[in-house]
Design a protein around this nucleic acid. Structure first.
Length: 372
DNA sequence: AAATCGTGGTG
DNA sequence: TCACCAAGATT
């Protein structure tokens, strides 16, 4: 059993940092310690792989070189820069925090993890990362890597999916981390977690810290970290209406909260809502569904439509907690139809390509272009 | 505390 | 195809 005495800790720090100095990754956001650079990269990296982030980061910095540029940017331009990255509230919170810094703090950054957490979108992990990397504060940055690395090193069998577990790891890591090089220590842990101590293919036999890895020494490293399972996505069936007139589509704007907030999509009608129109949903035939759908669109949106199946399998799109199955229907609406009860408007495909679209919308658009 | 919020990669 | 992961935050 490894004893984490003061001398063990000192030895671990040196081993880890020596390895990081020689083999740490050279990433675009590691060129300097500018808090703006660190911050933007950390937000992008939330639940997102490094290779995905790199081109987004480079483009973002070209578009918004300073926190002031970000604060003053048009939202449409911001969302276009974030298009495809997902978790879009990250982008909105990023700009909200930029405005906090520029307008409420005279351009001054909070320089501690505690202060940083008052900014929108900055939680305990990101605050620790920025504080340690940009401001040299000796605080841990406990992300999925840190959970995994230290769960294995110390055979900590707490469930990392539970909120109570975080403070335990913060205390453990806070005691082990290097007080003089906190930013490098935290980043070294992440590089280790992305290589020798990765989730699926660890290579602890060649790891610089294998001598400190209790789970590896005991042959049980794949049992760590302990993490309770998430339920799988719930299937939701929709009808997607392709309502075209000349080069325009009648598009729906999603509500300002919830999934894909504020994005434009083809009008989506939940199949359940259609079936709920019938007294005997289980007996509804395919033809009756379409007529019930037309009735629903009339009731909800005041739009008289005539729908026609477009053929092809439903478009499938999986989110973290939902799986959408969208059956496309061609529909006709008079171009001068009253849209006052419909949350949307006519948009040309030219306009559509200029605005930020979620992936599911791109899939639908691709399918529409294939068919027509 | 448990749900919510995107997308792409991987075994 | 599927399960699970990837530098989490918010409610």
């Amino acid at each position: 059993m490894i004893e984490w005495s003061e001398s063990t800790i000192r030895s671990f720090r040196k081993t880890l940092l020596d390895w990081y100095d020689a083999h740490g990754r050279h990433l675009p956001w590691r060129r300097d310690h500018d808090p703006y650079h660190v911050w933007v990269s950390e937000i992008m990296l939330q639940q997102t792989q490094v290779n995905t982030v790199i081109p987004y980061y480079e483009h973002f910095m070209a578009e918004f070189p300073t926190v002031t540029d970000l604060a003053n940017a048009p939202e449409a331009k911001l969302m276009k820069a974030w298009e495809g990255l997902g978790y879009y509230s990250r982008a909105r919170n990023l700009q909200k925090a930029a405005k906090q810094i520029v307008n409420e703090r005279g351009g001054q950054w909070p320089q501690t993890a505690e202060g940083l957490q008052e900014l929108a979108g900055i939680g305990p992990y990101t605050a620790g990362a920025i504080a340690s990397i940009a401001f040299n504060e000796p605080v841990p940055a406990v992300d999925g890597n840190a959970f995994r690395v230290f769960a294995r090193l110390l055979e900590i069998d707490l469930d990392i999916a539970k909120p109570q577990t975080r403070p335990v790891f913060e205390r453990v890591i806070g005691r082990i981390m290097s007080p003089d090089r906190p930013g490098d220590f935290n980043q070294a842990v992440m590089d280790l977690g992305a290589s020798y101590m990765s989730a699926k293919n660890p290579d602890s036999a060649h790891s610089p810290v294998k001598a400190f890895n209790q789970a590896y020494l005991d042959g049980v490293e794949m049992q760590y970290p302990v993490k309770s399972k998430k339920p799988k996505p719930v299937k939701v069936a929709y009808y997607g209406l392709v309502i075209r007139h000349d080069d325009q589509f009648l598009m729906q704007k999603r509500p300002s909260d919830g999934l894909l907030a504020n994005f434009w999509t083809f009008p989506l009608i939940a199949e359940d809502d259609v079936l709920a129109m019938s007294e005997t949903p289980e007996l509804v035939t395919e033809e009756e569904r379409l007529s019930l759908l037309e009735k629903l669109v009339q009731q909800e949106f005041g739009l008289t439509v005539r729908v026609i199946p477009m053929g092809g399998k439903p478009v499938k799109h999986t989110f973290t907690h939902r799986q959408w199955l969208i059956t496309l229907l061609s529909a006709e609406v008079k171009p001068d139809a009253d849209l006052s009860f419909f949350p949307g408007k006519w948009l040309s495909s030219d306009e559509l390509t200029r605005m930020a679209l979620p992936k599911v919308q791109e899939k639908l658009l691709t399918r529409v272009h294939q068919i027509q």
